[in-house]
């Protein structure tokens, strides 16, 4: 699927090299909505899938961690960064793998994920309902039986957050799907993943649209209950 992207020379776009502190993201505040909206969080915009892409290195994408509470992000470039930023309960989700498109929870027990061997107890279940309509977290049995380490490409089996349109190579977010989470410390939260393209456009047709810039909305219930009503 990415083979065609490799052949395309992506023209120069404004790129900010990632620095290992919070990236420039815009937060949108709707007074009627208790959820937090994060708009255009830059992920590893200096990496590319293919060769010959102006301003980008062809290499694997660096994982970016994100904290629901502080909105801090950290880039994990190497072993030193891993040692410093991963094995704690301060981050809740990370944007990892190709194009930072695999959104993974912080759980110390899941091998192969950034939080492995750390203290995190994160988990994720998919609820196919619009974000505002998810008003409470499902039972623990649901997390045990259907909990996922993360979500990425939905190949049609219903277990991802975006479809990759094989006609035009564009990531299309699944609509009206909510991810109910346990944060790193075990609070219930809900998340909707809205876009990977800069500016959160409703429809992307341009193969060269700047990415990855993550737009998403989340709500954390800090009182320990399952109540996820954000409005």
């Amino acid at each position: 699927m990415i083979k065609h992207l490799l052949k395309i020379a992506i023209p120069l776009v404004t790129i900010s090299l990632m620095v290992s502190c919070s990236g420039k993201d815009k937060e949108i505040v709707d007074p009627k909505d208790a959820a937090v909206m994060i708009f255009d969080l830059p992920a590893d915009t200096a990496a590319s899938m293919g060769e010959g892409v102006d301003g980008k290195d062809q290499r694997q994408f660096y994982t970016i961690t994100f904290s629901f509470k502080t909105k801090e992000t950290h880039v994990i470039r190497n072993a030193a960064d891993s040692a410093k930023y991963l094995k704690n309960a301060e981050w809740d989700i990370a944007f990892s793998k190709e194009y930072n498109s695999f959104v993974v929870v912080n759980n110390g027990g899941i091998a192969g994920t950034p939080g492995y061997q750390g203290p995190g107890v994160g988990n994720l279940v998919i609820v196919d309902k619009p974000f505002d309509q998810v008003t409470s977290a499902p039972a623990d049995t649901e997390f045990e039986n259907n909990g996922l380490a993360g979500v990425g490409w939905d190949n049609g089996n219903g277990l991802g957050w975006f479809f990759y349109s094989l006609n035009n190579h564009i990531c299309v977010p699944v609509r009206n799907r909510t991810y109910v989470l346990k944060t790193a410390t075990g609070n219930y939260a809900k998340l909707e993943l809205l876009n990977i393209y800069k500016g959160n456009p409703p429809v992307v047709t341009d193969l060269f649209w700047p990415a990855p810039y993550l737009t998403f909305r989340y709500y954390v219930q800090t009182d320990g209950s399952r109540n996820l009503k954000n409005r």
Binding site: K97, E98, S101, F102, V104, I110, G112, T113, L148, A149, G150, V151, G152, W153, N155, N157, L159, G160
Partner: peptide, 10 residues
Amino acid sequence: DAGLDHFQNN
């Protein structure tokens, strides 16, 4: 489905 090992999933 059974698919590609740990590709965009766990």
